[in-house]
């Protein structure tokens, strides 16, 4: 080992080995697919809604009554250039004879929301068993998840053309279920 030739040889081997390590480069090529799928979720805050028709003036008809406690929350992802709607209909129960139940949505609250939240239709719809638009042009967005986040819904219950129908109004309690639908995007 004290032979200078052997030392030089070993040094040469070690250098070659080091050079070899430096020359080794680990690479990998691959295509990465990043996918954000169409996505739709809807939920209400399930606020209890109780409406009562009454009057306190002799000779006067029962007046209309409104409730704005319900907020509809959504999360939506759509393909580019498409949008969704929120619709509403009565899925169970019947609006009492001689009365009508209307619904109108406000635009989405802004505190905790983001994205293309669409536009509420300002004319109240008369609820029936058929889906009707209440918010349109919803694209990719979220409304927030708080109790008062989302689209505020106003239900209004009133006598319907009382001059003709008032005698049909009967004292009772009626239970109605309204179903909100976040539609498939219009590219489907």
């Amino acid at each position: 080992m004290n032979n200078p030739s052997i030392k030089m040889m070993l040094t040469g081997i070690i250098l070659c080995f080091i050079n070899h390590l430096n020359a080794q480069v680990w690479t990998a090529g691959d295509n990465i697919t990043l996918q954000v799928s169409e996505f739709a979720l809807i939920e209400t805050n399930h606020a209890p809604v109780t409406l009562t028709l009454a009057t306190s003036t002799a000779g006067a008809p029962v007046g209309s009554v409104s409730n704005s406690d319900v907020f509809v929350k959504i999360s939506s992802i759509v393909p580019g250039g498409t949008d969704r709607e929120i619709t509403a209909r009565i899925s169970s129960g019947t609006v009492p004879a001689g009365t009508q139940l209307t619904l109108v949505s406000a635009n989405c609250t802004t505190t905790n929301s983001g994205g293309a939240l669409g536009t509420a239709i300002t004319t109240p719809i008369t609820l029936s068993s058929v889906d009707q638009f209440i918010v349109r042009y919803i694209a990719t967005c979220y409304t927030g998840t708080g109790y008062n986040d989302g689209y505020q819904m106003t239900f209004t219950w009133a006598p319907l053309n009382p001059a003709a129908n008032y005698s049909q109004i009967a004292a009772a309690t009626y239970n109605i279920t309204v179903v909100f639908t976040l539609t498939a995007h219009d590219g489907n």
Binding site: L53, A54, P96, A171
Partner: peptide, 23 residues
């Protein structure tokens, strides 16, 4: 990228009462 249904719904219950009125 798991898909979610394209159309979704949520139900809301309403209790509507007409008490007797006599004035």
């Amino acid at each position: 990228s798991v898909n979610v249904n394209a159309q979704v719904t949520s139900n809301q219950e309403l209790t509507m009462g007409i008490p007797e009125v006599l004035l």
